[in-house]
Write a protein that binds this DNA or RNA. Structure first.
Length: 110
DNA sequence: CTAATGACCATTA
DNA sequence: ATAATGGCCATTA
């Protein structure tokens, strides 16, 4: 598993935006890596890698080494609204950032 | 090597 | 909209 690639892509996510495990996997060349990507980010624990900006494709924040609640709080601090009750991201399609084409539908109408 | 687990994704009912 | 099922890859025991 090329962790370096995962971390590099994760770093590519700008503040105030979120991407998905599947996107990273797809950018690496294998969409099936989605699960492995999560493992890689989990193992990381480096502050230089904004793993908190990587969420599930469904719009849920997903898991986090420090707990999903912590992840949601960090995202909220970056301007991304998260519903603590359901653990879902508000305006997910709006804050979504595509790694392989630098955002596609996210910028379709500003 | 086999078996089980995980920060997932897509399909189907 | 929610709930349940199958598939995928890598790591760990």
């Amino acid at each position: 598993m090329d962790y370096k690639g995962v971390y590099s892509l994760a770093r590519s996510i700008p503040k105030g935006r979120v991407s998905t495990y599947g996107e990273i996997a797809l950018a690496l060349g294998n969409a099936g890596l989605s699960r492995a990507v999560g493992n890689a980010l989990n193992k990381n624990r480096s502050m230089e890698v904004p793993c908190h900006r990587v969420v599930r494709s469904d719009g849920f924040v997903g898991g986090f080494a420090r707990g999903a609640g912590r992840k949601a709080e960090i995202l909220t601090g970056e301007g991304i609204e998260v519903d603590k009750k359901s653990g879902r991201i508000k305006d997910f399609e709006r804050v979504f950032f595509s790694l392989w084409r630098g955002s596609l539908k996210a910028e379709h109408r500003g």
